[in-house]
Amino acid sequence: MFVVPRQGGELAVGGPAEQVTEVWLANRRLSEHTRAAYRRDVSAWLAWCSERGADPLRASFLEVNAYARGLEARELAPSTVARKLSGLSSWYDFLMKIRAVDTNPVAGADRPFVSRDHSATLGLAADEVDALIERARAAGTRHHAVMTILADLGLRVGELVGLDLGDVGWERGHRTVRFVGKGGKQRRRALTPAASAALDAYLQVRGDGDGPLFMTSTGGRLDRHAVFRLLRRLAAEAGIAEADRLSPHSLRHAFATAARAEGVALEDVQDAMGHADPRTTRRYDRDRHNLDRDPAYMIAAARARRAGA
């Protein structure tokens, strides 16, 4: 039974803290990856408080600031520190709702600035994506299907590994995959002919049994860490520079850049990627500052056409 902790009462790692955290997470539409990250973030904060004899139910923004500066001292990226504080702030918002605390100490804390115009993710050029997919083709049907779907659809790795065989289907002549996106939103995407062909080749090996779409050799679900390692290995074998810095998110960035370079409207790319804010989509577009895309050229070309008409 869940018991609301009283203000000023003991709240440490384990016991009531875990109960509070699980109830909080149960009330949020989150992916399992995000839930796990939030659990770690709250546990780290509670451990920090315990080491210093601080009561998390009486913490002020001063303690949160000290905690944040400690994270920065570990040379964590500003975006990582901001994400950890954001999760902690949501946890305190929940504590306010159940009247365990009166205020949210994270709300007044000094959070690191994170530019919406920059991402630390290392992107991939179009020819590098092509080389990666070709290397994956030679490495096996599952590897080829995984890399092709990530590249052609720009899915998050959690969305990919969360697919079950039953999520693959047909709609109005389109081969599709259905999945739960960020924020618990039900989404669907169309598979490209290349992705569909790669998937069919893999399914001939996998078989038609129910369960995870992408399976390990032992029949378990392929996890994000395996995809992470696979991408780096294939990139290194393909001769891609800085292969050890790549991640599945690099293909997501490459998708956004390629789509915009081919003239796909920003709002369509935003919808495809499941972004709530178009500024996020723009940040993924690594070519957005390319002067070749300066609208001045299109305006001048239109003026020239009118003059020659």
Rank of each mutant, 00 (worst) to 15 (best):
L230Y: 04
R172E: 11
L213P: 09
A198L: 03
F228M: 03
G184E: 02
G209T: 10
L213V: 05
R156E: 06
D208P: 15
V168C: 11
D167C: 08
M147K: 03
L163G: 07
D223K: 08
R189A: 10
M215P: 08
L213N: 07
R224F: 00
F214N: 00
A226W: 02
L163N: 01
D223F: 06
G169P: 11
S196T: 03
P193I: 10
G183T: 04
L160T: 03
T218F: 10
G209Q: 15
R221C: 09
F214H: 01
G169C: 07
L230T: 00
R172H: 12
M147C: 14
D164M: 08
A195N: 03
L231P: 15
R175P: 01
E171I: 03
G184A: 08
H174Q: 15
L163Y: 01
V180Q: 14
A151N: 12
L203C: 08
S217F: 13
K185Y: 05
Q186Y: 02
R221K: 08
T176Q: 05
Y202C: 11
R206G: 09
A198V: 02
Q186V: 04
E159M: 11
G166T: 14
G209P: 08
R178S: 09
A194D: 10
F214R: 00
A195T: 03
L155D: 09
R187H: 04
A198H: 03
V157T: 05
A190D: 13
D200Q: 13
K185F: 06
A198F: 11
R206Q: 09
A235G: 08
R232M: 15
V161Y: 00
V177T: 13
R206F: 03
R233S: 15
E159Q: 06
K185N: 05
D167L: 03
R188G: 02
L155K: 11
L153K: 01
